[in-house]
Write a protein that binds this DNA or RNA. Sequence first.
DNA 1: CGCTTTTGACCAGCGC
DNA 2: GCGCTGGTCAAAAGCG
Length: 307
Amino acid sequence: MSGESSEPYRHDFPFHDDLFSVFSQKEPDGLQGFDPQTAPPFMSFGDYLHGSTTDCSSLVAQGFDAPRSQPCDPVVGGDGGKNAPAGGGDGMTPVTPNFSASSSSTEEAGDEDWGPCKVDQPKQEVQEEEKHAPPGGEGRDKSKKANKPRKNGERQRGPRFAFMTKSEVDHLEDGYRWRKYGQKAVKNSPYPRSYYRCTAPKCNVKKRVERSCQDPTTVITTYEGQHTHHSPASLRGGAHLLSPSPTTNLRRSLLLQQVSRIGGSAGYTNPNTYHAGLPPLLPQLHVADHGLLQDVVPSFTHGSSHR
DNA sequence: CGCTTTTGACCAGCGC
DNA sequence: GCGCTGGTCAAAAGCG
């Protein structure tokens, strides 16, 4: 680990480019936003996506944390809140619904059916954010090792940002190796949330993956932390693929991943996101009918109507 | 054999 | 103070 650079690795570009600036929005509650100007120079969208997605029809990048507790179908297994054995026994990697029946028909799901989905109080966002902070010592010493210490401000995690992807697979390729360390049923959502951690020795980057209860075809990925190493993909020759332009880079990565299956939806604008307390700016990545990211048009739309 | 995934349990924080 | 929920751990199982 001598090669362990104390500073986060970043081989990308600044996020000033239209698309990435979206991720720099600060959370209203003080949630460390992703501000390229004030935030540390670590993760950049490209950092995460330079190798990305495998089967996405459209991307929605937002500088907010993945919405939680979205009252959809209280079908969340009758386990009473316990971990829901998502899937059952097939042990399929993809996030499997906790419920059997499902209207996961991409038909209506693709619409703007996000309405009902309400984001919990922003406060909770911060809560979780700080839940990881060390309480001071050994919080737990019973049978299981104590969770990551957490306390207000004690342990500030890196900025987090989430983006939605239209994909059939939950775990999208982003160039890094991840190890799943947990899965929990999400309240009010039939889909479980998976927790992944970068397998790199000292990399604390984590990411949560969950499906939108409103749109089963949409995968919400939330990254947290900063990579302290090069992405395996880059080291293997993927680095040269990086372009000074985030959009171009993204497009390339997507193309490289043979993003060729398109569900049909092209631009993506969800007015509700704004109402949910999310950043008003939303990027729209247009996808050509043939499935390829034709021209990643970083056309931002201002939330619903405000600003 | 090594690594990843699964899964049940535990803990901390928050709301009521 | 209690209950709920999110997040994490770790043993066991599965897989290449």
